[in-house]
Measured scan of single mutants.
Amino acid sequence: CFKERTRHLLREWYLQDPYPNPSKKRELAQATGLTPTQVGNWFKNRRQRDR
């Protein structure tokens, strides 16, 4: 489970761009302490949920 702060950051970025490029994923991974793969999976799952 991700911390509330991490989820908030991910949601904020998702609203700006639901399809982040690899450099954005790396930047967000550094900001949250997650791996770029975890960030990518979160975005993928969130896009699925929004369908």
Rank of each mutant, 00 (worst) to 15 (best):
T37C: 12
F43P: 01
E4N: 13
Y19N: 11
P22G: 14
P18K: 08
R46E: 14
R5Y: 10
G40M: 06
R51Y: 13
L34P: 03
P20C: 04
E4C: 06
V39H: 03
P22W: 09
S23Q: 13
K25T: 12
K3N: 11
D50L: 00
K44D: 06
L9D: 04
V39D: 00
E12L: 07
N21R: 07
E4M: 11
L10T: 01
R7G: 10
A31K: 08
P36S: 11
K25S: 07
T35R: 02
R47T: 02
D50W: 06
T35F: 03
V39S: 01
F43T: 01
F2G: 13
L34K: 04
N41K: 15
T37Q: 14
K24T: 13
R51G: 07
R7N: 11
V39L: 03
R7F: 10
S23A: 13
Q16G: 07
Y19C: 07
T37V: 12
N21D: 15
T32I: 05
N45Y: 03
R26F: 12
T35I: 01
K24L: 09
P22L: 15
T37G: 11
L28M: 13
K44Q: 10
L10M: 05
P22M: 14
L10K: 00
Q16D: 15
D17C: 03
K44G: 04
N45C: 08
R26A: 15
R5L: 11
W42M: 01
R11P: 00
D50M: 08
F2E: 14
T6V: 15
G33I: 01
N45P: 00
F2T: 15
R46H: 04
P22T: 12
R46N: 13
Q38F: 04
G40H: 11
P18D: 04
S23H: 06
T6K: 08
P18A: 08
R26S: 11
R11W: 11
K44C: 08
Q30A: 10
L15C: 15
S23T: 07
D50G: 05
E27F: 09
R46C: 10
L9G: 01
R26D: 15
T37Y: 10
R7D: 15
F43S: 02
L15R: 12
P36V: 11
E4P: 04
E27Y: 07
W42C: 00
K3D: 14
L15W: 08
C1D: 12
R5D: 14
K25R: 12
A31G: 05
R51D: 10
R5T: 15
R26V: 14
P36Y: 15
C1S: 14
S23V: 09
T35E: 08
Y19P: 05
T37P: 05
T35W: 02
K3V: 06
W42P: 00
L10Y: 00
L15Q: 13
R49C: 08
L34S: 04
K25C: 14
K24R: 12
T35V: 04
F43A: 00
A31S: 09
K24D: 11
K44R: 12
R5G: 14
P18H: 07
R51S: 05
G33E: 04
Q38L: 02
W13C: 13
T6G: 10
D17H: 02
G33A: 04
A29S: 13
T6P: 11
K25L: 14
Q30S: 13
N21G: 10
L15I: 13
N45G: 07
H8D: 14
R7P: 08
Y14G: 06
H8M: 15
R51L: 07
N45H: 12
K44W: 05
A29C: 04
R49D: 12
F2S: 15
N21V: 10
T37N: 11
R26N: 14
D17Y: 00
N41V: 10
Q16T: 10
N45R: 13
P18V: 02
S23P: 10
R47Y: 05
R5F: 05
L34G: 03
R47Q: 06
P22R: 05
Q30F: 10
P22I: 05
L10E: 04
D17K: 01
R26Y: 08
L9T: 11
R11M: 13
Q48P: 03
K24S: 11
Y19F: 11
K25E: 13
K44P: 00
R11G: 12
N45L: 08
E27H: 03
A29P: 01
W13Q: 13
K3H: 00
R5K: 10
A31E: 11
N41H: 08
T35K: 06
T35G: 01
Q48G: 10
R26H: 12
R49M: 07
P18F: 00
R7W: 07
E27M: 04
R46L: 05
S23N: 11
R47I: 00
L34Y: 06
T6R: 09
S23F: 10
T37A: 13
K3M: 11
L9C: 04
Y19D: 12
R51Q: 13
R49S: 09
R7L: 14
G40R: 15
R11Y: 14
K44V: 06
L34C: 03
L9K: 10
L15G: 12
D17G: 01
K44I: 08
S23W: 06
L28A: 03
S23D: 14
W13F: 10
P18R: 07
N21K: 08
Q48T: 08
K3A: 11
D17T: 01
R47E: 02
H8Y: 14
K24G: 08
L28W: 03
G33Y: 04
R11I: 14
P22F: 10
N41F: 02
R26T: 07
R46S: 11
Q16W: 04
W42N: 02
G40A: 13
P36L: 12
R11T: 14
P22D: 15
A29W: 01
R47N: 05
P18Q: 10
N21Y: 04
F2D: 14
V39T: 00
G33Q: 06
K3G: 08
K24W: 06
A29G: 08
Q38K: 05
Q38G: 04
Y14R: 02
R11D: 05
N41P: 00
P36Q: 10
Y14W: 02
F2I: 15
L34Q: 04
T6H: 09
L28C: 03
Q30R: 08
T32F: 00
T32K: 01
A29I: 04
K24C: 07
V39R: 01
R47K: 02
V39Y: 05
Y14F: 12
R46P: 06
E4S: 09
L28R: 03
E27P: 02
Q48Y: 15
W42V: 01
L28E: 03
G40T: 11
F2K: 15
R46W: 07
Q48H: 14
W13K: 06
Y19A: 06
P22S: 13
R7Y: 11
Y19T: 12
N21L: 11
K25A: 09
Q16L: 15
D50C: 04
P36T: 12
C1G: 13
D50P: 02
P22C: 15
L28H: 01
E4H: 06
A31T: 13
V39F: 02
R11K: 14
E12Q: 08
N45D: 10
E4T: 08
E12G: 08
D17F: 02
R26P: 02
P18T: 01
K44T: 08
